[in-house]
């Protein structure tokens, strides 16, 4: 045990050991210690599996998400599904949609594809842009830093939902909608991650081991790759774990407002748009997408908390807010 460790123990503060290359192993050990995170992780895995296997599952049921079944709804009563519990039965496991009679199970599992796919793609776009610009700002000269930081400030100041809403309106509808939604969310929502990466890179850059690498004679590129980027992994993964559930919510909200993923492609948010008028006649029409959305976001949030705690128990609380600049000033 090192001196710093002992000193910390003696002071009763419990500083964590410096993360090492054995970090991956420690990470899994700390993650496994959290039961809630494990359950959440299993749930996320299940959801991903369902989304991937959507065609298989619907084939098992013998339905697809887009076929209308006018015979299954009572047009005399405004399109209420015929049969108990909104038409649940052997053919339609979770019943059918009011008015159209489309199969709800099929729409739900295909909806998972859209939700998870869009959120994942948007997160990747956000991380790539955020890391690139954050590192560039931290390593560039004063003018590069000023320019990129001001630009980032402006992006952060633009409300994501509003900008996405407005942008989605003007792009021609010929563009594949889910890809478009992912791109728009990704292109607007990278501000905070860029700020965090810049702050972290600035901190790392000042560390003595980076100075030592320079004295060894290595060039900037090699130092960035070998000494800086590995130190960025933890905060980036942590913040990405926060972004993913948030992106799911944004996609659902945009689809709920009718500007996100458009019919006939199914999406959970879209399914909720008309659900409130049907809650008595077909409660599952409201409850299924709402429940799916809730569970997915909950599972991802709990998993994200777990990942954060496992990566860096002490910095966890600091990263939650994404105001690195101000905290920096305080410290």
């Amino acid at each position: 045990m090192s001196e710093a460790l002992v000193a910390a123990e003696v002071a009763g503060t419990g500083v964590d050991p410096v993360p090492a290359a054995s970090g991956a192993r420690q990470f899994w050990r700390r993650l496994r210690a959290q039961r809630a995170a494990l359950v959440a992780g299993a749930l996320v895995a299940l959801l991903v599996l369902v989304a991937l296997a959507a065609p298989l599952l619907t084939a098992l049921e013998g339905q697809d998400p887009t076929t209308y079944h006018p015979a299954l709804v009572d047009s005399a009563r405004g399109g209420v599904p015929i049969g108990s519990f909104g038409g649940i039965g052997g053919d339609h496991w979770l019943g059918v949609e009011p008015q159209t009679g489309r199969d709800l199970f099929a729409r739900l599992v295909y909806g998972a594809r859209v939700s998870l796919g869009v959120a994942l793609a948007a997160t990747v776009v956000q991380v790539v842009i955020g890391v690139t610009l954050g590192v560039a700002a931290a390593l560039g000269n004063r003018w590069v830093d000023q320019l990129l930081s001001r630009f980032t400030d402006i992006i952060v100041a633009m409300p994501l939902m509003i900008m996405a809403l407005a942008l989605l309106a003007i792009v021609p509808s010929s563009f594949p909608r889910p890809v478009l939604v992912a791109l728009v969310i990704g292109l607007i929502g990278w501000g905070n991650i860029a700020k965090i990466v810049r702050a972290q890179t600035l901190t790392l850059k000042e560390l003595d081991y980076v100075a030592a690498a320079r004295l060894s004679g290595w060039g900037t590129w090699r130092i960035a790759r070998r000494e800086l980027l590995p130190g960025l992994a933890a905060p980036v993964i942590t913040y990405a774990a926060l972004l993913a559930p948030s992106n799911i919510t944004v996609e659902a909200a945009l689809s709920f407002l009718g500007v996100g993923v458009k019919p006939p492609t199914p999406s959970w948010g879209q399914m909720l748009t008309a659900a409130d008028v049907w809650y008595q006649a077909a409660p599952q029409y409201l409850l299924l997408p709402a429940g799916a959305l809730f569970l997915t976001v909950l599972a991802l949030t709990v998993l994200g908390d777990g990942v954060r705690t496992a990566l860096d128990p002490r910095a966890a609380s600091r990263l939650r807010i994404g105001t690195g600049r101000k905290r920096e000033a305080r410290a």
Binding site: P245, A252, A253, F256, L272, L286, A290, F294, V297, T301
Partner: peptide
């Protein structure tokens, strides 16, 4: 609070 964080505005509103 965890449940609160995980529930989108329009789901809470609808319910």
């Amino acid at each position: 609070t965890l449940v609160g964080v995980a529930t989108p505005v329009f789901v809470i509103g609808l319910v």
